[in-house]
Design a binder for these strands. Structure first.
Lengths: 207, 207, 207, 207
DNA sequence: GATGAATGAGAATTCATTCAT
DNA sequence: AATGAATGAATTCTCATTCAT
């Protein structure tokens, strides 16, 4: 065993390239079939590599999956981190919604991978959810509560508001086939952007 | 083949009982591990039956899964069917939201099974989604549009409004672990009910 | 266990009837799929009985198969027994050929069952073949040799002559699909009867 | 799927070797037990390989069987193709009989595999029989008819004559155990060669 | 006699992973 | 770094047979 372990540092250029190739292929496959439904054969084929070669870069199927998840959460939480506590409350939240919706549109596979994992009980992410995620939400909730108490947005349960943002934006990625089945050929995201903007504005603007 | 096929009628009491037993066990297992992740062993164990005995009642793993999905959609769509086009618009929609949220609370496994299936592209339900579901949504959308045009609710894209109801209510079942990771020991559904009621009221009440 | 064993005697009318029913169904199935390829389900279905009911009349799948084979050999050897050593040699042999060919035409399933068994090494019939069959052939061979030495038929190896009769007649039952693939819609047996009559006549008539 | 499919070309030496090894083992097993009666375990054991390794070279049990059958027909029809329409009629046919008999002696397992398949209705070869085989027989039949009409052989139904050749020669391979049960320790093929030579000579020589 | 229900012993096949080069 | 070959450990499914009524 020469390398294999997920030591982030000390990788040659080709290492990094191939790992990226594999992760992208794995994302495609895992997000569609789930951890168990995906096979190394599929991933290797999608990456254009041989199966043993894939295993040269990752310790196993689960290791690929885990690496994928790890890289994911940061991207996923980033829009939340960009909220400016000193900005305009409604504007900040609307911008957050917008960023999350763009993420759904531009990275639907990532969204589905995440959804799959959480729906199945998040066996590999529970700690992160209870630690990092919860802390971040608590922080943001405090900010929102502040806005709310200052009368700058309508009174609202901050954490359920955050769930609402997540639910409403991720729905378009996760339930994509259903959305498209209902809408037909109409572009979901244009309508969604208008709708969500309008909805959250009404929800939040103090009367 | 002695029985096995899903001829709905003509089942003895014991047949019905055992099939129910198996379906319940399968729901537990499939909703947690997905179609591929679940094994007949798990299902048989959960049902307290031997593996071949499970296969005496269903033609195979997929047949159980399919039977489950088939029984599901009706339950899932029922709250939508109960909306009264002649009722009070805001009240009807709020009641709908409430019914859907109760469904998430009382049947989270069903919700997750459905979510899993749709996220993975709904290979077994695509037709139903494009047929029955779309038709139902179109009908309800017409009603909502009528309300909206009559000024009885705020202007809104009816189909995106429906997506919003689905997303916001199902989130509590599907992302249950995440919700609980964030909320800690607090009961999600009490807060969710208040929050959603308030949100949709603000969204919909004409100013 | 009330009955089951193949004690030939002491069977009620219904016993005999049902056994006959099962044997006929089994013949159909075994001759087409072989001992292993056939399943009790197929046999039970073909007989219009339930699987356990079939097993009430026979001890098991092999028992049915064995019973079938046992009943078979007698029918199969009968045409040989009818040869009259005091009759006209060529006429006797031609009549024998004719009887065997009729057997192929009228009982092709029996012929194929027998063929299947012998091709696979006759695990259940080897003793009978080495005993009863060989004895019978030896007897007939002696008769033919007598005819041959008396100049009443052309000189011939008697046992290979007997093989020839078997091969040429059974071919039409055993290789039925091939024969029909080659002949198209033409009736195989009419042509076969003429052809074999002519052939054996030429083979056997002393010049 | 890495390899498996029967793309005739592009096989490495080891591929070819192992495939040959497996096919030989499979021939042994299939010809004795039939398609259903044979198990991958038996084949793998006979080939000295592990079961999954066998499946590395062939897509499944049926694929092995099919590959075997495909390779078979050519060998089986070859003796017929060697008949020279411009040669001496009786000599050509006698030589054909001889070649077919040699084939039975040298490749009895192949003969039995073929017989098994045809007896069970040739589910996998019916098209070939109705296409290639029939065409070939039609051609040869025309040649024989020519000989017959020219008075160079006795009048005969050409296609039934061909059946006779097949039946008489293949019998020694297919019904081997029966032949040996009757003949005892005597070598079947020596006697068969003399007998068939003599028989066909008498059948065919014009008086 | 008859049959719905149940099961143990296979059997085929899949697949992550390892081996050898 | 790369890959053809190989395999052990599942996993689904089949089927003869038995159980219980």
């Amino acid at each position: 065993m020469t390398r294999k372990e997920a030591d982030t540092g000390g990788r040659s250029r080709i290492q990094t390239e191939k790992r990226g190739l594999i992760l992208d292929a794995a994302l495609e496959v895992f997000s569609q079939y789930g951890l168990k439904g995906a096979t190394l054969d599929m991933i290797a084929a999608a990456a254009g590599l041989s199966k043993p070669n894939v295993l040269y870069y990752f310790a196993g199927k689960e290791a690929i999956y885990t690496a994928l998840l790890e890289g994911l959460l940061e991207v996923w939480l980033d829009p939340m981190r960009q909220i400016d506590p000193t900005g305009d409350p409604v504007g900040e939240i609307l911008a957050y919604v917008r960023r999350k919706l763009d993420l759904s549109r531009d990275y639907p596979r990532e969204s589905r991978l995440f959804a799959n994992e959480v729906i199945q009980g998040a066996p590999l992410m529970l700690e992160t959810l209870e630690g990092e995620l919860r802390a971040l939400v608590d922080d943001l909730a405090a900010v929102i509560r502040g806005w709310s108490e200052a009368g700058r947005i309508a009174p609202v349960d901050p954490r359920h508001l955050i769930f609402s943002v997540w639910a409403l934006t991720q729905h378009y990625a996760d339930f994509d086939v259903q959305v498209r089945a209902v809408l037909g050929s109409e572009d979901p995201y244009a309508g969604a952007a208008r709708h969500l903007d309008e909805m959250f504005r009404r929800m939040l603007e103090p009367r």
